[in-house]
C-alpha cells in the first residue's frame, strides 16, 4: 500500500473512531447528564397521598414554602435554606434585598396557600381550614417560620382543639 493510501486510511479511521465515540456517548445520554431542573414555585404542585398527619404536615410545609417563594420571586429551595438559621436568613435578606416585613407577608401568604391546598386535596376539613387561615394571616414572623419548620405540631394542635367542635358542627350542618 502506498504512503498516500495509508494516510487516507489513517484519516478515515480517525474520523470513524471519533464519530463512533461521540455518537455512542450521545446515545447513552451524554447531552442530558445535568442536574434536575427545579419546579417553578408559582405552579401548583400535586399533593402525594395526603394520608396521616405526618404526610399532611410534609405536604403542608412544601406548599407553604412554594407559596412564600412564589411571592418573593425565589425558588422554594432557596427559601428553605434561608429559613434554616437566623444567619442564613440574614444572608438571604441581604442577597435579595428582602426585609422582615416582606418576608413575614410572604410566609403568611404561603401558609394560607398551604391551607388552601390541603383543603383542596381533602386533607383538611373546610371547618378547620377557615379558622386556621384567619389565624395564620395574623401571626408574627418568627411564629410563621416555626410553623413552616414544624407544621405537624400546628395541625396536631388544631385537630385536638377543633376536633370535638368539628364533629358537632358536621352533625348540625346539612
Amino acid at each position: 500500500m502506498s504512503v498516500e493510501a495509508r494516510g487516507k486510511l489513517l484519516v478515515g479511521a480517525a474520523i470513524a473512531a471519533s464519530l463512533a465515540l461521540v455518537l455512542a456517548y450521545l446515545a447513552a445520554g451524554g447531552s442530558s447528564y445535568t442536574p434536575e431542573k427545579i419546579q417553578d414555585p408559582c405552579q401548583p404542585r400535586a399533593w402525594r397521598n395526603p394520608e396521616g398527619l405526618q404526610e399532611i404536615a410534609q405536604q403542608f410545609t412544601l406548599s407553604a414554602l412554594d407559596g412564600a417563594a412564589c411571592q418573593l420571586g425565589v425558588s422554594r429551595e432557596t427559601l428553605a435554606r434561608a429559613l434554616a438559621t437566623p444567619r442564613s436568613r440574614e444572608r438571604f435578606a441581604k442577597r435579595y434585598g428582602i426585609d422582615d416585613a416582606e418576608l413575614a407577608r410572604a410566609i403568611r401568604g404561603g401558609l394560607v396557600r398551604a391551607v388552601d391546598d390541603a383543603e383542596r386535596a381533602g386533607a383538611l376539613s373546610p371547618l378547620l381550614a377557615a379558622p386556621l387561615r384567619a389565624t395564620l394571616r395574623r401571626i408574627p414572623l418568627e411564629q410563621a417560620i416555626e410553623i413552616v419548620r414544624d407544621a405537624k405540631s400546628l395541625l396536631d394542635n388544631a385537630q385536638t382543639f377543633l376536633g370535638p367542635a368539628q364533629g358537632l358542627l358536621e352533625q348540625i350542618l346539612p
Binding site: 504512503v3 498516500e4 495509508r6 494516510g7 487516507k8 486510511l9 489513517l10 484519516v11 479511521a13 480517525a14 474520523i15 473512531a17 471519533s18 464519530l19 465515540l21 461521540v22 456517548y25 450521545l26 451524554g30 447531552s31
Partner: peptide, 24 residues
C-alpha cells in the same frame, strides 16, 4: 502510518474526537 500531513490531520481529529467524548 502515512505522510506527515495525514498523521497530523488524523491526530488532530482523534484529539478533537476524544475531547468531544469528554464533553458528552
Amino acid at each position: 502510518a502515512g505522510s506527515a500531513r495525514a498523521r497530523a490531520a488524523a491526530g488532530a481529529i482523534l484529539v478533537a474526537g476524544g475531547l468531544g467524548g469528554l464533553a458528552l
